[in-house]
Write a protein that binds this DNA or RNA. Sequence first.
DNA 1: TGAAATGTTGGGGCG
DNA 2: ACGCCCCAACATTTC
Length: 466
Amino acid sequence: MSTALVWFRRDLRIADNPALCAAVAAGHTPIPVYIHAPHEEQPWEPGAATRWWLHHSLLALAADLKALGSGLVLCRGDTALELDRLIEQTGACAVYWNRMYDPALVRRDASIKEGLRGRGIEAHSHAAHLIAEPWEIKNGSGEPYRVFTPFWRKLKTCLPLPEPLPAPTSLTPHEVSGVELDSLELLPRIDWDQGFYGAWSPGSEAAREQLDEFAIGALENYAQGRDRPDRPGTSRLSPALHFGEISPRQVADRLLRKASLAQRELAEPYLRELGWRDFGHHLLYHFPHTTEQPLQSSFADFPWAEVDPAQLSAWQRGRTGIPIVDAGMRQLWATGWMHNRVRMIVASFLTKNLRYHWLHGARWFWDTLVDADLAANTQGWQWTAGSGADAAPYFRIFNPITQGERFDPLGSYVRKYVPELAHLPAEHIHQPWSVGGVRGYPKPILDLKHSREAALAAYSELRKGI
DNA sequence: TGAAATGTTGGGGCG
DNA sequence: ACGCCCCAACATTTC
């Protein structure tokens, strides 16, 4: 019987895994492999929070594979060298994997594919991560989209997707061994991750349970509920989707199969968010320079403010003196995740009120989010800064007080993450200075009205230059 | 997937 | 009963 490597990357699941299924269907003995090679993702090497997630996700995948009779082989080093070593060791005649779209990985994978085929090894890459491959969606003139709404209209024509592939019922055992998970050094050396264990359960099984819970509970009121950080109104599936513990196809299938027309309509706002996820990948694939450079070249000379390390640190650690901003940044620090509405608020604060380059925010999120994803992070920050696709216009500057009062009206989100303010009543909690301030909680690090006006002035200068 | 400034309207208090 | 003013509530415009 022939042997094939199934190279796991960001598809850490056994159900609906096209590469795994294809290897099995071709009659190979599949050898599941994960190769840790963070240096190949430079300059966006996985951050500390995603490494934490990855550790636990690999643990879960290894257990799932074990239950099917096979073991996950862990390696570290140069991917191409490790694959070659494994091919020699096992006599594998083929390598199967599911695609990724980060610019550095697209280049690496293309080179690996070429190398394998050059030596007579079959190399099969599969679509598994998105609703549609980035190159499949084109506008009328054959160009990639830069505006979400028409992109989404086009993407929706792919729905409903084909049924997800079932997990193999069993796998042929193999004798290959790899390194220990601990030797990948994914977990932090100092234990800042205590808050993560209560907040998350990495792995496919937990992701499916979470999807179920979301579909039964919050989905119905998602259109409004998703904007409320004080309530469990979102799916919280972003890290599982990032690592492919669950696929968009499995999500869409759960929400749409056997759904009535009314249920389909309720699912639409959530599927639209999956559409934004695809849109981010579409942009990243077609405009790979946007990980550092603005998509809109008019932003090349934008007068970002010089960074004051104390101010940046106040933002990072949730000590800006603006309650909703601090609550969000502390939620991020404590749990590796932040509610999407609050991400927009803190990002607007950094790029517009502080007028810092969006990359300062992108890098912080990159290191602290368990769902840090190059496509989504790049797209999200450029959108906020105004330099991205379909971006927030330069004059759209969030007022964090108004946003706090509107979306955390009782103040319970702020109370949870900013305990210094917990005693304040709802009518004052978003403006603690209105009751003379609170001991131990900072005064606002900037004047919202004045910084807003300064941002408007800077952005309107840019507009003149266009 | 804004906020603030400005404009308009209509109910009610009051002389 | 009437006109005047105030101002909340809503709509429109501007950044």
